[in-house]
Nucleic acid binder design. Structure first.
Lengths: 218, 218
DNA sequence: TCACTTGTGTCATAGTTGTATCATACGATT
DNA sequence: AATCGTATGATACAACTATGACACAAGTGA
């Protein structure tokens, strides 16, 4: 799970980000001013990424950026619209990306993912819709709530997500998850699909393709 | 098979990419400068993805990007290390991803696959008239509306499209779709053809060739 | 033992497929 | 051109098959 520090003096924006990122499976901490941010960084150094507003009371974003640099934590600047000079300066100073306010949360998440990937901080995790699947811990989060899946359910889910939008033929799917030939004529696969559907409330995503198999759609 | 356009003035890099991507199953075309790339794009518009170096003689990557945009072909930028500004500008201009030189070919392939998937460019896709048939998801779209076909209908449609403008003899057609010898004298094949015609409104495209079979015409 | 996972059986239902029937279109023959 | 035999279109229906839903039993590990 990623640890994100949100540095933003506008509490409304900070909290919005906090909630949305939490939902997207990120652990977040908010700092409402530069000094506070510095303190938090000092105390807990294992952030994976910092979202940094430039206009901050007291210590501003640039100063903070200098402070963060030696920690080698990627930084995404949050800048007001039109403040071109800020952006350029930010990038020159070594920010990894910037996002212009007002922003869509989806965009933030996408940029964050890109930056994290670029920085090699990629963790083995898959996402689909509101679900995050961590391959290392074998945990599944849905809207930040852990969903307990059994082994087969988990493997099945991983396969479906890795092949999203591709029909998985019943026999092939069975053979991949169960690692043995499909003898047909039992309710095993269906039953597990049903269990997955139920636990995740994914009736609409896991489509059955009649006479062929299943497809995770979205 | 995917068609990739490699635009890169450093021939060593271009050829390396060419070879590696070829091995990975991509059809590649190289362009060593922007003008050449534009010509190739003009001539042959069915590329699935463009790998685009930014630093090019004459026409640079940005200009070319503007040129490519209306074609709706995804673009991955190739940028020199540290050229952060380039990256940002590229992404802002609508590139789908970028890769920093020097790169591992594996990384390039992974990014390409991701971009292609994101853009919904599935290799296994047939089109005819207003219909797109995705062989992976087994979905059929007509004017962006999904048409639900049964297994036989789908197989039949695929065969017809793959043999467009060629008469399919009834017995051959039957044997291909039903995978069993044609015993004649039943309405099975006709009925399925009718069902296809009806679902797609393709009375005018699926022609019957009296006493021979059917032909998808257009 | 208990709690949990996993596989299988049964039944109901829904969707698919093949065939029969009748109507219409085609083409050869006169 | 008229006629006739045959092929195909259209439709409805019956048979079939796959899947969902559920319950339960066997297996497994704490």
């Amino acid at each position: 799970m990623y640890n994100i520090l949100i540095v933003e003096d506008d509490e409304a924006i900070a909290n919005l980000l906090y909630v949305e990122l939490k939902d997207a499976g990120y652990d977040c901490t908010c700092a409402y001013d530069g000094k506070c941010a510095a303190d938090i960084l000092e105390e807990k150094m294992d952030f994976d990424l910092v979202l940094l507003d430039i206009m901050l009371p007291e210590i501003d974003g640039y100063e903070l950026l200098e402070y963060i640099k030696p920690m080698e934590i990627p930084v995404i600047f949050l800048t007001a619209k039109g403040a071109l000079k800020e952006r350029i300066q930010g990038l020159n100073m070594g920010a990894d990306d910037y996002i212009v306010k007002p922003f869509q949360t989806g965009e933030v998440i996408a940029r964050m993912a890109a930056v994290l990937r670029r920085c090699g901080k990629s963790i083995n995790q898959l996402t689909f819709s509101d679900v995050i699947v961590d391959l290392e811990s074998r945990k599944v989060l849905q809207n930040s709530l852990e969903i307990e899946l059994t082994m087969k359910e988990f493997d099945l889910l991983v396969d479906l997500i890795q092949n999203r939008n591709i029909v998985q033929q019943r026999d092939k799917l069975y053979e991949k998850v169960w690692k043995q030939p499909f003898m047909g004529d039992t309710r095993t696969l269906d039953t597990h699909i049903q269990r997955l559907r139920k636990k995740l409330g994914w009736e609409k995503y896991i489509k059955t393709v009649f006479r062929i198999g299943y497809r995770l759609e979205g």
